[in-house]
Design a protein around this nucleic acid. Sequence first.
DNA 1: ACCCGCAATGTTTACGTCAACATTTCGGTC
DNA 2: GACCGAAATGTTGACGTAAACATTGCGGGT
Lengths: 338, 338
Amino acid sequence: MADVARIAGVSGQTVSRVVNGHNNVDEGTRSRVLAAMRSIGYRPNNAARALRLGRFGNIGVIMFTLSSFGNMRTLDEIAMAASDANYSITLIPVRRPSQTDVTKAFARLNEQAVDGVIIVIETSLIDTAEVHWPTGLPVVVIDAGADLPHPIVDTDQAEGARLATEHLLELGHETVWHVSGPANSYSANRRRQSWLETLQRHGCPVPPVIDGNWSSDSGYQAGLVLAHRPGVTAVFTANDQMALGLLRALHEQGRRVPGEVSVVGFDDMEESRNFWPPLTTVRQNFEGVGRRSVDMLIHGIRTGQNAGPLRASTSTPENVLVPTHLVFRDSSAAPRPR
Amino acid sequence: MADVARIAGVSGQTVSRVVNGHNNVDEGTRSRVLAAMRSIGYRPNNAARALRLGRFGNIGVIMFTLSSFGNMRTLDEIAMAASDANYSITLIPVRRPSQTDVTKAFARLNEQAVDGVIIVIETSLIDTAEVHWPTGLPVVVIDAGADLPHPIVDTDQAEGARLATEHLLELGHETVWHVSGPANSYSANRRRQSWLETLQRHGCPVPPVIDGNWSSDSGYQAGLVLAHRPGVTAVFTANDQMALGLLRALHEQGRRVPGEVSVVGFDDMEESRNFWPPLTTVRQNFEGVGRRSVDMLIHGIRTGQNAGPLRASTSTPENVLVPTHLVFRDSSAAPRPR
DNA sequence: ACCCGCAATGTTTACGTCAACATTTCGGTC
DNA sequence: GACCGAAATGTTGACGTAAACATTGCGGGT
């Protein structure tokens, strides 16, 4: 900056004013400064700026590897929303859902230049005893149960699972089978529980849960189990990827979908409408989740929430549930006479 | 830090030594300092550190929205590799593939606290005249043509397309149809060109290209076009998502796969093996691409490559092509007698 | 002619950290 | 007991920026 100032024949402060777009700079001076900047390829030093301003304009995101469709969409929307608010995103990946990896990620987070944090990992893996929660930073959690001293933004998992289950029941099925997500996932548990409650509320028999792990492979395995099980006419899978695998298994075993078995997924990934058959599914509003979480975090940053060391947020965090809706497609098209 | 020093009864420098794990600190002092740090929830100020050290430990990644499977996998691996090398990742999203959005992203990049940059967008969209390339920063480009003054890391697109095409020809098909990616994509063009050259080399007729845009929807549209076209017995789609849509269209139109039509994709996304039928495809080594690009970038950072303002790298950049291989599955299982 | 007020610009200083150098402490050696 | 060397710790200053305050210059009102 000093070089720029010298070349343009002004003080450093004036350069600073030009860089930051202050308007009380003479037009001639401004262009002289801009020319000087270009001539030496000046880049403002963000570290010095952050040091001076006391903020980084940066949000940290802790997230599992992006292999899951939902995580990816969420990250994408967070990045967009943050970018719109003039924040950048620092991604802190967690390789495996192990306690040590999560602990490591939090440690790394603590030495990052971030103004706030969005956490998108299964909170069941966060051993509060072991993990160093970032101190003095606002935090927003996505996809989590309650009882955290931080605001939570999440899809309304329970509503979605209910919509899926009731949709299948309304088609006339006796009951609905469920292929669940992994046991350590909050959203998987929430969907499973809501499916179960919905069946009970409608007085339907509750079949055993088939355990999956989000992957299409696990859906395929579940499909092999269910294909020849008597009475399996409707299956709700906890995400679309498992539905894909399930569909393959059913095709392979010669079961017609939706003729003999109706299938409903969860997520509405872009591909779902081109599954064979196109998949009825619960559409998550990823954009809504991403945007709301960034909004809440930035609000926390602005109001200095959680800014003091070790002081929990004073008021109960206001949590947000983002609604879902059912997208009806061929995989559950054939009504069954009751 | 001053507070910690006061509480622990030491100087700030000693606190710094403890924080940075220097070993010439008395054990008792160290624990006293650590206790003081915990007691007030001290976080080192990364901005000040970066200012002092002259580096940020941070890599910027410019990338289109993550909706494409390949981008997501690449980002994931970049994040992992960077994390292993003790760098964090700042994600700069580009909403749409428009010149203005790209220009904006580069502008944003220029005010980021990054030591280097990895660019993962279609370089055809980078209007060199308009965009401000980051000055004085090492840059690595993924998925690009040549003639950039930066190292390039990429999947060997040509080899992959050749493998796919030759595989289909070896099955006895007269020729191979192609559903391509969008025209502004380097990798799409590379794959299309290699498909064409392979057909020519084998003396096969070259059918017209069906234009797609990576999305499964465009694959579906292509499938509707191809389903009843005479002579269509083998299709190579430029990615797996389009193959999914193509499969749906073929099923819908009553064409058997692989009985009547063989299909091969590109990417090998995790779901491909659970398509119906499971998809023969070209597996990209995303981990390799991510890791190599981060390696090269960090090397550039260490050696101060491109560090001077406006000075292009002196030597020709060493580009890297990461090999692919064909994953054989049912969608191209049925050999056709020649 | 004088003064006021405002716009443009300059000067000073502090942000938090760590390298470099300076100082202290202490066990061991002759 | 004087001295040495190494380990532990302290002191100083600089990194690049922008807020706060200071100064300059100039047009317009009286």
